[in-house]
Design a binder for these strands. Structure first.
Length: 470
RNA sequence: GGCAGGGUAGCUCAAUGGUGGAGCAGAGUCUUCAUAAGGCUAAGGUUGUGGGUUCGAACCCCACCCCUGCUACCA
């Protein structure tokens, strides 16, 4: 069987699971299920990114050990698989012992290849905040919170990765593989970034200042910078360095948010090249979800969590609403009102109601139809999924539902009887089973329920699949 | 500032040189098998602005206005 490997990015565990990540992982799930249906052996990876300064600070703040802190969040992210009915096969935590070993082995390979060196790293420090500041945080080269205080320059010795050595190799990769990053605007963006010149980046932190990380091999005074360690999960989860699974499944497809473009499609690829491993097969970049035109944030109080969505719309309702949002490449704006509107229109009134109509007609007729399921994927759907247009795939399914509704109105089966009624019920029953079969990747439970309903010995009037919201 | 993408019906978007389309919302109408669901019909656009090329422009060219993203060490 052909191997197919897909992975999400690992969410950083300093907050509750976010709707944007739910979107990312649901699209990954559809791709995983799709490839499985197409006959591939599938590995679907996700997990949690657990090291670094922010987590360390939060743990200290909460008065618990970093490990306790991340254990709590890792459990919550693991629950997403159940919450959203995901076909995840691998869940990796960057604190897993195997990942730690793999990260150290990876570091050694980069070092052996001559791509890691020590350098004095200058940081800007605001005495007012007692914090290091990055350039992007500064206004006019001053801390925005303490503009009257001059920033101190502090120096520390860090390990650096020779990112700059991979400029040409990355440009060649983008050129030779025009679908390496999708959508293509993002490939253009990363190409222009890399073409503009690369600076080596620091990949370690002094342990005495920030101990929560993987120890640098051969230097107990340093831990790896969280990015360097986290990216390696994509192969450590496959058992790298010593594993047949790795050789069989790598390279794979990576899904990431647009804020991750550079890390995934440039830094990580350079790291792989340095370790003399093949680059990823493809990076799929998705946009952000905003709420009513505003960025989702706790301070605005407008956060929509996947848990809340599932409570209101059910698992498959949530999956549908997120998948139908639109081309995953762009940003999408949502509101609860819009979600309700689409839920009622597409799920309750269209799909759910059509299933009820036909099932009721069948039940009244008391005929034995003996319908059976047939596995097949509509070419329109595989075509849409090859280009990651989840919205178009769903649209093509809903066109069939709409058409079925038209046929019901035209044929007026409630006025039919005998063989003409049987013919109608058989045809529409087969059509609804076909529709449900197409829905399997998107709404697995709903699909099974519909198929079970219509392949039953005796078809009975069902409960509403998606009760209308008032 | 530079680079990239975009501005089409009230809303979300489709249509890349040949009579501007769909869904949703709103209007009218038919129907009752169904979750007060469904079908049909009509209406709705000077395609951001100004110029140009062309027999013909939403589409190509020039200028301008507006929106979004990127312009590296935040995980």
């Amino acid at each position: 069987m052909k191997p197919y490997y897909i992975t999400t990015t690992l969410p950083y565990v300093n907050a509750e699971p976010h709707i944007g990540f739910a979107w990312e992982i649901i699209t990954a799930d559809v791709l995983a299920r799709f490839h499985k249906v197409m006959g591939c052996e599938v590995i679907f990876n996700t997990g949690t990114d657990e090291h670094g300064q922010k987590i360390y600070n939060k743990a200290v703040e909460a008065g618990i050990s970093p490990q306790e802190y991340v254990d709590g969040y890792a459990a919550k992210f693991r629950e997403l698989s159940t919450l959203l009915n995901l076909s995840v096969t691998h869940f990796i935590r960057t604190t897993d012992p195997h990942h730690v070993e793999a990260a150290q082995a990876f570091w050694k390979r980069c070092a052996d290849h001559g791509d890691i060196y020590k350098k004095i790293y200058k940081t800007k420090y605001c005495v007012g905040c007692e914090l290091e500041k990055t350039d992007s945080e500064l206004v006019d080269n001053h801390c925005p919170l303490h503009p009257q205080i001059e920033l101190e320059i502090r120096e520390e010795e860090n390990y650096f990765f020779k990112f700059s050595a991979y400029q040409q190799a990355l440009l060649d990769l983008y050129k030779n593989q025009p679908d390496f990053v999708v959508p293509k605007e993002k490939l253009a963006e990363i190409t222009s970034f890399v073409a503009g010149g690369l600076q080596d980046f620091s990949i370690s932190r002094l342990k005495e200042k920030m101990p929560w990380g993987i120890e640098v091999p051969g230097d107990p005074n340093h831990v790896m910078y969280v990015w360097f360690d986290a990216l390696i999960n994509y192969i450590s989860t496959l058992g790298w360095p010593d594993s047949d699974t790795f050789t069989q499944f790598w390279p794979g497809v990576q899904i990431a948010g647009k804020d991750n473009l550079r890390q995934q499609s440039a830094m990580w690829q350079a790291m792989l090249l340095s370790a003399q491993l093949p680059p990823a097969r493809q990076i799929l970049i998705n946009g952000f979800i905003s709420v009513n035109g505003e960025k989702m944030s706790k301070s605005f109080g407008n956060v929509i969590s996947p848990v809340d969505m599932v409570k209101r719309y059910g698992i498959d309702g949530t999956r549908y609403l997120l998948l139908s949002l639109g081309p995953v490449s762009g940003d999408m704006d949502v509101t609860w009102e819009k979600f309700d509107h689409y839920y009622n229109g597409y799920l309750a009134n269209s799909l759910g109601n059509t299933v009820s109509r036909i099932a009721n007609l069948c039940a009244r007729a008391e005929m034995s139809l003996s319908l059976t399921r047939k596995e097949s994927v509509d070419p329109a759907i595989s075509e849409a999924l090859e280009t990651y247009r989840f919205d178009l795939a769903l649209e093509s399914i809903w066109n069939r539902i709409k058409n079925l509704e038209k046929v019901i109105d035209e044929k007026q089966p409630w006025k039919l009887s005998g063989s003409s009624l049987e013919l109608f019920l058989r045809q529409s029953g087969e059509e609804i089973i076909f529709i449900a079969t197409q829905l399997q990747m998107f709404m697995p439970d709903t699909a099974e329920q519909i198929i079970a309903l219509f392949t039953a010995e005796k078809i009975t009037p069902p409960k509403p699949l998606f009760p209308r919201l008032s």
